[in-house]
């Protein structure tokens, strides 16, 4: 089942758990783990963060808005409490890293370098739910490249960059990250959204805005993942509203080497297992390679 190397990481299957939807890998007992390609842990900062006040989530048509605010214990607690567990696991764990400055990203990368249990880093320059940093770096090609280069210099680990859809030209940001040394790109993070409570006339999320995820964003995600894959030579990992094998196949046909499943895990704790099982039944490798060959020769 292995032999799938994407962006410097040996994956067990092409279906990974997306950051923020699988905790630290200890919280989803019903997931069929042998089918899990790998996981990206909940976004971490150097310091502990309390997160945003509730309400933090709201359901929307075919989707949900979230504003969790990257609640987390900070990198030292992550290294102490979770990395030793991950070192024993038979699938790779990437850490989603966040900072309010380029230096903070670099410091996090340096701190995680060589820590047993960490197979790679996913740079989050696309979180819409923090006041400082986050999406700010992902909106500007020069800033995105600066963060990527700083992380690249600070670690020997594979470096993936998670892109925001909130840009006018994703290809430009994708190429900037590639030039700065990224090993792979993840497309896309959530889209910024808002919803008002009809009873109070106020935003339904305490933070005001939130990140939209779920099936509602899938066509946008497929388009942007395709655009990224067309723009760079490094692998692209597709994310956005994947709920099953057919959705995953769309991203693979769009040129992605792997996919991440997020919101679907909230609904079905074994969404990843079921997706991978169905991909196997479809003989996904042959299907994708055959289609690519047919397209390039046609």
């Amino acid at each position: 089942m292995s032999g799938l190397r994407v962006g410097g990481v040996e994956l067990r299957s092409p279906v990974l758990a997306a950051s923020g939807t699988f905790g630290y890998g200890t919280e989803v007992p019903l997931c069929d783990r042998p089918r899990l390609g790998g996981m990206v842990s909940k976004g971490i900062f150097l310091q502990p963060r309390p997160g945003t006040p509730p309400p933090r989530i709201v359901e929307t048509p075919s989707g949900m808005l979230n504003a969790i605010g990257l609640q987390g214990p900070g990198v030292e607690a992550l290294i102490r409490d979770y990395c030793p567990l991950w070192a024993e696991w038979d699938f790779p764990v990437l850490v989603n890293i966040n900072g309010e400055s380029v230096d903070e990203y670099a410091e996090l990368a340096a701190r995680l370098d060589g820590v047993p249990g960490v197979s790679g880093l996913e740079i989050n320059i696309s979180c819409p739910n923090v006041r400082e940093g986050g999406m700010f770096f992902g909106k500007d090609p020069a800033q995105a490249a600066a963060v990527t280069a700083a992380v690249r210099r600070s670690t020997r680990l594979p470096v993936w960059v998670k892109l925001t859809p909130a840009v006018s030209d994703l290809a430009e940001v994708a190429r900037a990250c590639e030039s700065a040394g990224a090993d792979a790109l993840c497309a896309i993070n959530t889209l910024v959204g808002m919803s008002f409570d009809l009873g109070t006339g106020r935003p339904r999320l305490a933070f005001g805005t939130g990140g939209l995820s779920g099936p509602a964003i899938r066509p946008i995600a497929v388009h942007l993942a395709h655009q990224a894959a067309q723009s760079v030579a490094i692998p692209v990992i597709g994310i956005g509203g994947i709920g099953g094998a057919e959705d995953a196949l769309e991203f693979l046909y769009a040129g992605c080497q792997a996919v991440q499943i997020g919101t679907a895990t909230f609904i079905d704790p074994n969404a990843i297992g079921k997706t991978m099982e169905a991909l196997e039944a479809l003989d996904w490798r042959r299907l994708v390679e055959g289609t690519r060959a047919a397209i390039s020769s046609g």
Binding site: E27, V28, P54, P55, I68, F266
Partner: peptide, 14 residues
């Protein structure tokens, strides 16, 4: 509270 997953991963039901 509002709840996302019910299993402890989404941190939505803070």
């Amino acid at each position: 509270t509002y709840m996302g997953c019910g299993t402890g991963v989404c941190l939505g039901c803070a």
